[in-house]
């Protein structure tokens, strides 16, 4: 067990999400920045689908109630273990009563906390990922206790990873979406020549961009959408669907983010800038 003394702004449990229910309208869900989460699970030699805690903007305070090993990474947030600063992407051993605290956000937006064996919240429709109302909670609450495995003896093959400048990246690799051919030369010019700013409306469902491109009058029948799909609304607004995004939509799907680009975008917040690169 561990106890979430304070949950922070928006903390959830996420694995790689749900499979096989897109045709019933169930979003994938799962970690937003899989680049970071995957590396943490690798470091702890967890299963690739082990559930981690996704921490948004301001992090939690956690009391370990069992001995285990953990590591954290993603957004650059100051962290302490029993009041001593700790590093990201580095494995730490903890005992019952140890306290992990998150402090100030320095860069990025989402941090991941992984424990040896993963967080053992119940799997609903084959996934531990929080997504209300498929899971009863939409986010972790103060005081909640989460089951974890006891682990006292473990020698990690690697105790730390160097991740490099991932958080500084702002170029999003995209491929053509199904309605790419609708784009005019002027729209294409704008899309690929200048930067875009993250608008106020951004969450696990979608990121909206502040700058608009030329409007359009194209009408299409509702069709499938995916995490990373960039939709163009009739008024010229760009909406990038993310992991909790709806599974169908009626706006042209002009571009599709690469897996890496979804992770890069997941670390962006209001007023951050991104640009697109067609591959």
């Amino acid at each position: 067990m561990l106890r979430v003394l304070k949950a922070g702004f928006f903390s959830t449990i996420q694995d790689n999400g749900r499979f096989g229910l897109l045709n019933k309208g169930v979003p994938v869900a799962g970690v937003m920045d899989s680049f970071s989460a995957t590396r943490l699970n690798k470091l702890l030699e967890n299963e690739t689908n082990a559930a981690v805690m996704e921490i948004t903007m301001t992090g939690p305070t956690i009391e370990f109630l069992k001995p285990t090993f953990f590591c954290a990474g993603g957004a650059d947030i100051l962290m302490t273990l029993n009041n001593n600063p700790i590093q990201h992407f580095k494995v730490y051993q903890v005992q019952k009563g140890d306290i992990l605290s998150y402090g100030k956000l320095v860069k990025g937006f989402r941090n991941y906390l992984a424990v040896k064996g993963g967080f053992q919240v119940p799997a609903i429709l084959d996934s531990r990922s929080y997504f209300y109302p498929i899971t009863e909670q939409s986010q972790l609450k103060d005081g909640v206790e989460i089951e974890i495995d006891v682990c006292e003896n473990y020698s990690p093959k690697l105790t730390a990873l160097q991740i490099g400048s991932f958080l500084a990246e702002s170029k999003l690799e995209v491929s053509k979406g199904p309605e790419f051919q609708l784009l005019s030369d002027r729209q294409l010019e704008r899309l690929f020549s200048k930067k875009f700013t993250i608008a106020k409306e951004y969450n696990r469902m979608a990121y909206q961009l502040e700058e608009m491109i030329e409007q359009h009058k194209y009408n299409m029948l509702t069709s499938a959408t995916l995490p990373g799909t960039i939709q163009l609304t009739p008024s010229g607004k760009l909406i990038i669907l993310m992991k909790d995004g709806q599974t169908t939509g009626g706006y042209p799907r002009i571009l599709q983010l690469s897996d890496k680009a979804i992770s890069i975008l997941a670390q962006k917040k209001y007023k951050d800038e991104v640009s697109f690169k067609l591959v």
Partner: peptide, 10 residues
């Protein structure tokens, strides 16, 4: 179609 929300029928 089914989408928009889990179980929402078009």
């Amino acid at each position: 179609g089914i989408g928009f929300l889990p179980g929402f029928m078009y």
